[in-house]
């Protein structure tokens, strides 16, 4: 791929009502830069649905359909079918949901869309909890995290199960393209969208979108948190094209996960033993990812 220029055109107006330092809004902004204005987008109940503006305001310069929480993918399929019926074939159709709306309540509809191979782009902007309703745990909340429904308390009741791996779930649907991305690395994200947008079938992006409000850090640190998630490989950058894994960006030297955890209030209750468990899991996941990339290389077309 040649030198990348991120398009200058803004398809998201300023003046949204998101929190200071919101990662999710950056995900939307970069996505639309990569896709251009011949794009239709559907959004379920989530932070973006609110911050896009209360009636009659709207922060997008592309057609937007707000839909019910669990219907993002089915709605995108419906838009695509209508465009197909009308013979319109030069419009990108996007489902843009949060982690709860995607990995939990919306997973059935998403699985249906991916299994049918409907020609849409699905973006999960992941802030690792139900942030719009006030920081309740989701299937994408990481092991160890405090949320308002895993409140730690006096019994150590933090999230005890790992984050649901949505990219793996989507890869299992035999879709042409699934990838992670981060708002801390817009070039990587935009490049991936541009690479995949014209592929036929369902394309899936898991976009790491730090949330100062829910993760309990100061708003100016959103990008720093994203960088650390990458450098510690808590959230690695990779893509899976037709089942072939490729790590798109490797840290020069992996940093300890404690560097990432200690900046966030949601992990402040963790003792050294628990942090060791998290480090072990992150190490294992990273090695497995590298092994998958190595193993699947020979299947590249």
């Amino acid at each position: 791929m040649g030198k990348l220029t991120i398009p200058q055109e803004e398809l998201m107006n300023s003046g949204h009502i998101g929190c200071l330092g919101c990662g999710g809004t950056l995900a939307m902004r970069y996505l639309l830069k990569a896709l251009g204005k011949r794009t239709m987008i559907t959004i379920p109940a989530c932070c973006i649905a609110i911050m896009s503006g209360i009636y009659p305001r709207n922060f997008l310069k592309v057609p937007l359909l707000d839909v019910a929480f669990e219907t993002t993918a089915a709605s995108a399929s419906g838009i695509r079918a209508a465009l197909d019926a009308k013979g319109i074939d030069d419009v990108y159709v996007v489902g843009f949901g949060g982690d709860g709306g995607t990995a939990d309540i919306g997973i059935q509809a998403l699985s249906g869309t991916a299994e049918r191979g409907d020609n849409i782009i699905y973006v999960m902007y992941d802030n690792e909890a139900y942030m719009n309703t006030g920081i309740q745990r989701s299937g994408a909340t990481p092991f160890g995290a405090w949320t308002t429904t895993t409140p730690v308390g006096t019994t150590g009741d933090f999230k005890k199960r790992p984050k649901k791996n949505m990219v793996e779930i989507m890869v299992a649907h035999d879709i042409p393209y699934a990838a992670t991305a981060s708002v801390a690395y817009p070039e990587d994200f935009v490049k991936k969208v541009m690479k995949a947008k014209d592929m036929d079938g369902t394309k899936f992006f898991h976009v790491f979108s730090p949330c100062p409000t829910g993760w309990r850090y100061s708003p100016e640190m959103t990008i720093q948190i994203g960088v650390l998630a990458f450098q510690t490989t808590v959230f690695p950058m990779y893509e899976v094209e037709n089942g072939v894994y490729r790590v798109t960006k490797k840290p020069a030297k992996r940093k300890p996960v404690a560097d990432y955890l200690k900046l966030q209030g949601r992990f402040k209750h963790l003792d050294d033993e628990t942090i060791k468990i998290i480090q072990k899991n992150v190490d294992r996941n990273w090695e497995m990812l590298l092994a998958k990339a190595e193993f699947t290389k020979k299947f590249a077309e």
């Binding site: 559907t42 089915a74 419906g78 079918a81 209508a82 009308k86 509809a109 299994e115 049918r116």
Partner: peptide, 21 residues
């Protein structure tokens, strides 16, 4: 669209109708 549930059937009809079909 051979959807995976009636909930998605109506969701897809809504989106298709909103797109003018």
């Amino acid at each position: 669209i051979k959807v995976e549930s009636e909930h998605s059937a109506m969701a897809a009809c809504i989106a298709a109708s909103a797109t003018g079909a």
